[in-house]
Each structure stands twice: as C-alpha cells, then as structure tokens.
Design a binder for these strands. Sequence first.
DNA 1: TGTATTCATACTGTGTCAATAGGAATTAGC
DNA 2: GCTAATTCCTATTGACACAGTATGAATACA
Lengths: 143, 143
Amino acid sequence: MRISTKGRYALRLMLDLAVNDTGEPVSLKDIAKRQEISDKYLEQIISVLNRAKFVKSIRGAQGGYLLSRRPEAYTVGMILRLTEGSLAPVACVEEDSSCGRMQGCAANMVWRRLNDAINGVVDEITLADLVEFARRDVGEYMI
Amino acid sequence: MRISTKGRYALRLMLDLAVNDTGEPVSLKDIAKRQEISDKYLEQIISVLNRAKFVKSIRGAQGGYLLSRRPEAYTVGMILRLTEGSLAPVACVEEDSSCGRMQGCAANMVWRRLNDAINGVVDEITLADLVEFARRDVGEYMI
DNA sequence: TGTATTCATACTGTGTCAATAGGAATTAGC
DNA sequence: GCTAATTCCTATTGACACAGTATGAATACA
C-alpha cells in the first residue's frame, strides 16, 4: 500500500518547479541536485509530466522546464494519478470495474470508503498549498 | 497503491468466519469454496492469522477454524496491518522512521494527511460492522 | 563549433506477488 | 488400530513491477 518513488519524486519535482519559478527554465540537473534524486531517473518521470503538458520544456543549452499552469491548477491527485496510475486501493472500486461479487461484497464497503478518504485528501491539496506550506512552515530552500 | 490479495483475502476470510460462526469449527476448504479462493493460498494466509491468535484452529478430521474473539474486537486495520504490513503510504510517516528531509519536507504533509485518512477508515470499521452490513444490505449468504 | 540540455529507447538486477506443490502431523469416526 | 479429513510447514515458481542505469540522438544557446 505504498506510493512508489515515481509518484513521490514527481510531486517533489513539481513542487521544486513551483518554488523555484523565476520565469526562466529550470534544468533537470539542478532539480536532481536539490532533491538528491538520480537525474536520469528524473528524466523518465518528467517526460511523463511533459507529455501530459503538466510542464513545458525548452530544449538546448540554458534550457529546462517550467510549469505550464499556475500552481493552484494542479492538485496532488492529478500528479499522483498521472505518474502512479490509479490510486484506488483495490481494482473493484475503479470506474470501469466489473467485479462479479460486487453486489454481494461487504468488504467492498471498506474499499469504497478507503477510496473516498484517499481521494478526499489528494484532490483537495494543490501545489499552491504546498508552496505556501513550504514557505511559511518550512523555509524557502527546503522542500 | 493497492491492497494486495493477501490483505483482501484475509478480510474476507475473517468475515466468512464471523458470518458462518455456529460454534463448530469451519474448515478452510469450505471457506475457500464459498470465497472462490485457492485453498492452498488461504492456508498461508490463515496461518498468519493463527499465529497472531486472531483465529483458533482445531486440527484433525472435522477440524477447522474459529474466531478467537467476538467480531467487535477486530478492526479492519488490525487485520490488514497484520497481513499486509504497514498501511502507511510512504515509509517516512511510520512510527520508527527517520528521514533526513523530514524537517523540511512539504510533501511530507501530504503523506501525513493521507496516512491519517487511511487509518481513520480502517481503524473505525470492525468485523461486526461488516457482518451487520452483510446481513442487512447484502443478504446472509453473499460475502 | 562546442557545450549544455532535452528526448527516446533499451536494458538490468532485485524483489514482491500470487500462487502451486508436496508432504508431515494430528484427530474424529468407524 | 485404520482411514479419511483436516491443519501445519516449507520450498519453489513464473510473472511482473520497481528503481534505476546506459547510450546515444536531437536541439539550441553563446
């Protein structure tokens, strides 16, 4: 029941971009250094964010990445679902599921409530909330 | 971010024992048949529940298993944590964790809230709740 | 032109998941 | 006591995902 490094790193990456936004592109190497994450691995992760247009990229020397929208426009849920896939605790509470036992499954109640609780958290927190939290309670340079 | 079959089956197994409790031991073969789960796999799962004294076993012919406490005494969280291990979405929100970045990690706030939300659900629902739900809303014979 | 950067793809070692397999130990019923 | 039904114990397996690493091509600033 773990969020994988892919989702966690994606969130830190997006947060790093939000915090270090000066209008100039931020290179992946810088992010990797700040976040202490393998830059080669980050490359794969940001390529997902890039294809989904969560970030925009600028190629060549002095290139890098920028958020393509304002931080308020990203929820944690959007970022995690994109990189992790579904956050549903079991397959049978996903939209397009069809479990034969569903009608008669009391355990299903647990999974639905768990699913709602998880979504309730990740869909309520935006990147802007995290930026504010980082600035106020944590200090600008630690993410 | 999935609950594995081990935890899911364990919950269904315990619920089956609760619903089919007549005072007589229930054989694993019967549970496996009702739940449509491999009996050999269920064996491994129930051995965990047995070692933790969540169930008591009666060996030999006509043997089987019984809940060792009343259904109200088991929360879903107890059962899942025993079989799944920790339910924490990331290692750094576990009791005995020591992440160097913790002090300065805004993302950590997400994981803590997620952790609280998950625990809030699984620690509030007991086996007795599920039995009642099954009897009332689902029908006695479907679990 | 050289250097810094993104982009694309392939590869790999490790571990977990979800069982399956085989047999030993125990006990009720005949 | 014998047989059948059951729990108990341990090993093995195939598939897959995770968490990277590696290599090189394409692009663009200076």
